[in-house]
Design a protein around this nucleic acid. Structure first.
Length: 420
RNA sequence: GGUGGUGUCGCCUAGUGGCCGAGGGCGCACGCCUCGAAAGCGUGUGAUGGGGCAACUCAUCCGUGGGUUCAAAUCCCACCACCACCGCCA
């Protein structure tokens, strides 16, 4: 949620942001008008209510006929108060509903434009030259008896899979390595709920009612998270944190669930795009003025992981039109995928500034003792998809895969070999 | 799933329709006292929104949401969380 007071003082900022995202900036005028009407309705209600309260006093003191007369007037007043309150509430609800649909104000440094208008910030490592025809990750996964898509589909449908044997070990090792790195960098490891209440989902910036990505359990009014970011953002909801405990950094380990509606026919082979995967996610609560620096730190930690795994990748600065609801800026790291001859997203780090905190009411006390919203940020440290890059980039002609040194102790193997 | 109990300002607690427009204690902050501190004494002590340059002021908030009433922390209903016991089950 954006800040209403900022909007009143500087509506052009939101207009510019909306245009950068390629969205309608007329919403600004609608918001301002609604806000104005709500405030005057609220003032009307409040003065009526004050009158009612003082009037009620005289009723309790009066006796006999006088009391009866006062009671009659009091009843009228009560009705007026009720009507005024209802009006203020209705306008408040209307405003709130509209506010819920307004995305975060984008960072002015974010590139303008849509999905293809990203800016490549840097390229790290060189795509490897193969002296044989490299296999794709699924061919390797099947050869290694590590990935079983067919039985995944049998049991759960398309885009589900089993990780088996060295595949299971690889994922556990990878995620554990990520978690250990996070711990070394001061993060508190967390294993989070994967089912959350609607207000948690909504507060993080996902539309429970409209988002096509979300799995729902309507009978229980619970929602499967697409990332532990959701649970970690909700973790401190409704709290006022101590300024001296910031920044708070959590590393969440969870399964993630995505419906992938509308991506029919895209990435249908293998585990690039699946309904359920596992992820270690970094999540930071910081002072708003520290959020840009923290964003760079998260990016640096992502790169540390990718470097340790000896993967060639590039870093892109996502354009405004391709940012999610909550993000003011987003950097993605994309690893080279030899079988596709292109870079694919492995990590994504977003600076959500105070947007999520405002919705979830996560605050801290500033120097003057006043509560202020924190800024929240998130970034990927490892996911199931990374297996794709590891298998493909480190494969050998016989289908075996030489694990990068840093990963070996976590997997307990140096080379993944096809079973005899 | 069932039965019973509990839910008040950071913590503990008072409060069974108007004197609660929430009292007290602890904690915390400031002041007095002191060479300094402790103790003691005094003052203050939340959130949200509206108005105001400001001191300030008005409204809302007693788990959440409804309802009854001129008036609700207090009465009624539903829900949630926690505790205890019972039943069922990885």
């Amino acid at each position: 949620m954006i800040d209403l007071r900022t909007l009143r003082e500087d509506p052009d900022r939101l207009r510019a942001s909306q245009r950068a995202r390629g969205e309608d900036d007329a919403v600004v005028d609608t918001l301002l008008d609604l806000d104005e009407r709500r405030r005057s309705a609220l003032t009307r209600f409040e003065s009526l209510r004050a009158e009612q309260k003082s009037f009620g006093k005289s009723v309790s003191k009066a006796q006999g006929e006088e009391k009866a007369a006062l009671l009659a007037r009091a009843k009228e007043l009560a009705a007026e108060v009720k009507a005024a309150e209802a009006e203020a509430e209705a306008l408040g609800a209307e405003l709130d509903e509209l506010m819920q649909t307004v995305p975060n104000i984008v960072d002015e440094d974010a590139p303008h434009g849509g999905e293809d208008d990203y800016v490549v910030l840097e390229t790290c490592g060189q795509p490897r030259r193969f002296d044989f025809e490299p296999r794709d990750h699924l061919a390797l996964g099947e050869l290694l008896d590590a990935i079983d898509m067919e039985r995944g589909a049998k049991v759960s449908g398309s885009r589900f899979f089993f990780l088996k044997g060295v595949g299971a070990r690889l994922q556990l090792g990878l995620l554990n390595m990520a978690l250990q790195q996070a711990i070394a960098n001061g993060f508190t490891p967390m294993i989070t709920p994967v089912l959350v209440k609607p207000e948690t989902m909504q507060g993080t910036g996902f539309h429970v009612a409209h988002d096509k990505e979300i799995y729902r359990l309507p009978e229980d009014d619970l929602y499967l998270v697409g990332t532990s970011e959701v649970s970690l953002a909700g973790y401190h909801a409704q709290e006022i944190l101590n300024a001296d405990e910031l920044p708070l950094r959590y590393a969440g380990w969870s399964s993630c669930f995505r419906r992938e509606a509308g991506s029919y026919g895209k990435d249908t082979r293998g585990i690039i795009r699946v309904h359920q995967f596992d992820k270690v996610e970094m999540f930071s609560y910081v002072r708003p003025e520290d959020s840009r620096e923290e964003h760079r730190r998260l990016l640096a930690w992502e790169k540390e992981m990718l470097d340790a795994l000896e993967l060639p990748y590039r870093v892109i600065d996502t354009a405004a039109g391709d940012l999610g609801m909550s993000a003011a800026r987003k950097f993605d790291c994309e690893a080279w995928i030899p079988s596709q001859g292109r870079y694919r997203e492995l990590t994504s780090t977003s600076n959500c500034t105070e947007f999520q905190a405002r919705r979830l009411a996560v605050r801290f006390r500033d120097k003057d003792g006043k509560p202020q919203h924190v800024a929240t940020l998130n970034g990927t440290l490892a996911t199931t998809r990374w297996i794709v890059a590891i298998l493909e980039n480190h494969q050998q002609a016989d289908g075996s895969v030489v694990l990068p040194k840093a990963l070996r102790p976590y997997v307990g193997l140096e080379v993944l070999e096809p079973p005899k």
